[in-house]
């Protein structure tokens, strides 16, 4: 409940205040979104499994986003930014899929 509220507040803040993102950071925003989704779904699954932990959630979220953005940033510097972006997106989305599948098994028992 409180989790959904926090998310909703964040989305509303982002949409209404439209904080200006520095130009150099803009290409990494989509990557950060996918990394954040991965951490969110991981947390949701852990909660349903009954093994949720604040520390792991916070640390995994920050680490996920930072590492994903950093990998793409280094890739951009090396001239393989596009390929590394694809790699990061593929890995994260496979994880999102498996997490969502686990959540689905919990909620619908199917």
């Amino acid at each position: 409940m409180i989790a959904a509220l926090g998310l909703a507040i964040g989305v509303a803040l982002g949409l209404f205040f439209k904080p200006s993102v520095p130009f150099w950071l803009q290409p990494y925003l989509p990557i950060a979104v996918v990394a954040a989704l991965d951490a969110l779904f991981g947390g949701a699954r852990a909660m349903l499994d009954g093994i949720f932990s604040d520390k792991v959630f916070v640390v995994s979220f920050i680490a996920n986003v930072l590492v994903a953005v950093l990998v793409v940033f280094i890739g951009d510097r090396l001239g393989v930014g596009g390929q590394l972006t694809t790699g990061v997106i593929v890995v994260l989305s496979i994880r999102i899929f498996s997490n969502v599948a686990a959540i689905r098994r919990h909620l619908l028992s199917a």
Binding site: G10, L13, P19
Partner: peptide, 8 residues
């Protein structure tokens, strides 16, 4: 997280 989603 919501902020990132909203900004994006």
């Amino acid at each position: 997280a919501g902020l990132v989603l909203g900004i994006a």
